[in-house]
Nucleic acid binder design. Structure first.
Lengths: 106, 106
DNA sequence: ACGTAGGTTCTACTTGCATCGTACCTCTTG
DNA sequence: CAAGAGGTACGATGCAAGTAGAACCTACGT
């Protein structure tokens, strides 16, 4: 079962849920953004400057978090998100490579 | 541009469109069904016996066809669908492997 | 010629999801 | 302690997408 913050274990990750999370343009752009940076890079939700409201941004990060794509790290003041790269590569080998191979989102 | 039956060329296939097509349980089940059979296997839409109406089944196959997952082959009486395995492996390497690795759909 | 099987298209309904505004929470800093 | 930054939770709304029924089309078989 997911932990107290909604992070599933790799074995609990569901392919359909992950595909659905990636099918949204904004969310795919966020994952692609992480893939252009070094592994372990932490970014705040706000740093992506998505063209939607703050609550909608939070919603999208919740979807990605609950799918297992991101892990939220509490830093006291600001929470940051980290791509769960190693776990995703083990659970869904090749998936992140597909996202990385795509041109930058429109 | 797609041909007269709506089949995109591999270069025209869009990752978001493909992910969206695979995010539906029924459609993912169809693709998984093809992957359990030899390459080039042709099946009619009806052979999957999806738990939805005939028109809804046709709709789902249209979504998969337009995403580039399937190719429809006209056999006079009955049209059959074929998984575009080689083209998909070239355009989205690893994608079909992810679907194949998942347990049978519920 | 007719009936049947397999698909498609059209229209309509209904569910799901993205979106937003507001309120609320937590931590930091003045 | 107050104010602000960064996120979350809740309720409401609007559009996209899944669903179904009916009509139609083509090819095959009798």
């Amino acid at each position: 079962m997911p932990d107290e913050e909604g992070h599933p274990l790799p074995a609990e990750m569901d392919l359909r849920t992950v595909l659905h999370a990636l099918a949204d343009p904004l969310r795919l752009g966020v994952i692609a953004g992480f893939l252009r940076e070094p592994d372990g890079t932490e970014r705040t939700c706000a740093s992506f400057q998505l063209p939607v409201s703050k609550s909608t941004t939070s919603h999208h990060f919740k979807v990605m978090r609950e799918a297992g794509l991101l892990r939220m790290v509490d830093h006291g003041n600001s929470r940051t998100a980290v791509l769960r790269r190693t776990e995703l590569d083990a659970r869904f080998p090749g998936l992140l490579g597909l996202v990385r191979a795509e041109p930058a989102q429109d």
